[in-house]
C-alpha cells in the first residue's frame, strides 16, 4: 500500500544522516591520520593511502549531501510518496540478534540458540508450537554436531551453571 502525503520542504531521510555521519567520520579519521613513529622521509608514509581515501570519501559525501539538499528543494512542491515500513519487526530482529550474541556469552551456544530460533521464527509469523520446537531443536542440534562434534570448534559455553549444562551437552555430541 502506498500513501501520498503532501509535504513542505521534502524529507530528510536516513540517507542524509548516513552521509553526514560519513563526513564526520572522515573528518575525525583525517585528524588522527599521523604517526609519531619515524618513517623514511623519501617514501610517502603509512598514512598517505588512507588519507587519499578519506579525502575521496569526504568529497563524495559532500557531493551526496549537496545533491540531497537540491533534490529536497525540487520535491518540496511535489507530493511525496511514502512507502510504509515495518520498523517494529526490524528493530525486534536487531535487538533479538544482539540479545542472542550476548546470550551466547552468558548461557552458552545451545541454550541461546534454542531460545533465539523460537523467538525469531515467532517474530517472523510462525505460530505453530510444534514447528517452532522442532525447528529450534533441529537447528541447534545440527549446528552443534557439525561445529563441535565434527569440526572440533570450541563454541561458547556460558557462565555459572550454564557452563556445566553446555559442557554436558557437548560431551554427548562429540565423536
Amino acid at each position: 500500500m502506498r500513501e501520498k502525503h503532501p509535504r513542505k520542504g521534502g524529507k530528510i531521510d536516513g540517507d542524509f544522516f548516513f552521509c553526514l555521519a560519513l563526513i564526520i567520520a572522515a573528518c575525525f579519521l583525517l585528524s588522527i591520520s599521523s604517526t609519531t613513529i619515524k618513517v623514511d622521509e623519501n617514501s610517502l608514509g603509512p598514512f598517505f593511502w588512507p588519507k587519499v581515501i578519506l579525502v575521496g570519501m569526504l568529497i563524495c559525501g559532500a557531493m551526496k549531501l549537496f545533491f540531497h539538499l537540491r533534490k529536497r528543494k525540487s520535491i518540496s512542491e511535489d507530493n511525496h510518496v511514502n512507502v510504509p515500513t515495518n520498523y517494529k519487526a526490524l528493530i525486534f530482529a536487531v535487538v533479538l540478534t544482539f540479545g542472542y550474541f550476548l546470550g551466547i556469552v552468558l548461557v552458552g551456544y545451545p541454550i541461546a540458540s534454542l531460545i533465539f530460533v523460537i523467538a525469531l521464527s515467532y517474530l517472523g509469523g510462525i505460530r505453530s508450537i510444534k514447528l517452532l520446537a522442532s525447528v529450534s531443536v533441529g537447528l541447534t542440534l545440527i549446528t552443534s554436531i557439525l561445529f563441535v562434534g565434527v569440526m572440533y570448534i570450541s563454541l561458547p559455553r556460558g557462565v555459572w551453571i550454564f557452563y556445566d549444562i553446555t559442557n554436558w551437552f557437548f560431551s554427548l555430541i562429540k565423536f
Partner: peptide, 10 residues
C-alpha cells in the same frame, strides 16, 4: 523465511 532467517543467523 522466518525459519530460514533463524538458521542463517546461527
Amino acid at each position: 523465511y522466518a525459519i530460514l532467517a533463524s538458521g542463517i543467523t546461527l
